[in-house]
Nucleic acid binder design. Sequence first.
DNA 1: AGTATAAACGACATTGATGTCGTTTTCAAT
DNA 2: ATTGAAAACGACATCAATGTCGTTTATACT
Lengths: 218, 218
Amino acid sequence: MPMCPRVSDEYKETKKREIAAAARRVFIRKGFAHAVMQDIMDEAGISRGALYAYFDNLEHVFMEVLRYDDEELFQWTGPELQSPVWGMLMKWLGEIEQDLMKLQHSLVRARAEFFLSSAYVKDKKHYPYIRQRYENAVDAISRVIRAGEERGEFQPLQDARSLAGYILSFLNGLMLDTYQLGPDATWAEQQLDVFRNTLKLMLKPSSTDGYRDLSIGE
Amino acid sequence: MPMCPRVSDEYKETKKREIAAAARRVFIRKGFAHAVMQDIMDEAGISRGALYAYFDNLEHVFMEVLRYDDEELFQWTGPELQSPVWGMLMKWLGEIEQDLMKLQHSLVRARAEFFLSSAYVKDKKHYPYIRQRYENAVDAISRVIRAGEERGEFQPLQDARSLAGYILSFLNGLMLDTYQLGPDATWAEQQLDVFRNTLKLMLKPSSTDGYRDLSIGE
DNA sequence: AGTATAAACGACATTGATGTCGTTTTCAAT
DNA sequence: ATTGAAAACGACATCAATGTCGTTTATACT
């Protein structure tokens, strides 16, 4: 029996999450490329030694931040999908639009920077993680589309997986551009209108209750 | 009258372009985040002093590389658009698809890294340039759509500018994801099929001669 | 050939960040 | 209270990259 560990495992877990939360704020503020360990120490109010006791390096910090973050990302695509699926989808897009409009600072940029720059590292050690994230996102969206299909609510013109990829690509692209230039420069709202239209045309939802019909000819 | 400049202005311009070409190779290989001045000196086979005689810093080098590159980007959207516009559009997408498939290393990643990371710098000194680039791209695509519209070839469901933004967002997003994960992981081909479909539905081209009809119901 | 001028060179001082490590502090069990 | 373990601290050695500058080299004109 060890003499006496000074603090409980629980304490350490809590502390780690605290530091990660501080780091998260830093990454939101400065992105990944310009963030340094010192920023995190300052933000968390801890010493160099303490930080390095919990994390090996900046990449490690970031990966953990992402991990905590992901725990609540695609919650809306649980097994228990309330009806109607189209409504859920539009609601989700609405939330994304809100984020874009408010220029609400999220991890979007830091994440993009991180993934991009880690594409170079020789050993490719994050690749499985990055790929897994992408797969998860595609799966979540595919599941929603298939749910709508099985209920007879959608009649997709192409397969769910391809559509899911398409949806992700567009949203990623829009978020990136908008992050840099602002929603006014990119016409984010109008782009989203176009996008909603394409979804409608591709998914052929039987009903679009409760959401504005853009009255596109057809 | 100055005594004698050792070399002509032309010589200096040539040399600058040579260095930029070397730098371009470096950026393609390592991206922006991991490239350093030394890499460019090595690649170009010149000394530190020489490099700094032509460029102030790494960002400066990159901006110049981009500038040279842009000179030939949207050439296909000149004032003299050959018919049919839909065909041109599809041809362009085909080229993009080729690039993606070959994983042909281009400046895509470096450019994204550069724009993302320069979003932080306090003084925002590149902002006008970045924005200008975006505007140019949107304009070029808008022009194409309007040309098709004026000729009665297209009947767009929404305005050209919104559609242009939408097109850019999707392509940017697809390129980024595909750069990181490869065209197989992202199902790039299938995504592009979906995308072509949406374009067809949104632009309603009167004819799609010469390009595969995906025989979507309708 | 000789010379003035600027291009090219590369050593160097400087900066900024990293990860380590010996020391100090804090806590829980005795 | 005492004590032992480990959490937190912060000084420090190290490293990598930057931008400068005094020196050397190349060239065009005389």
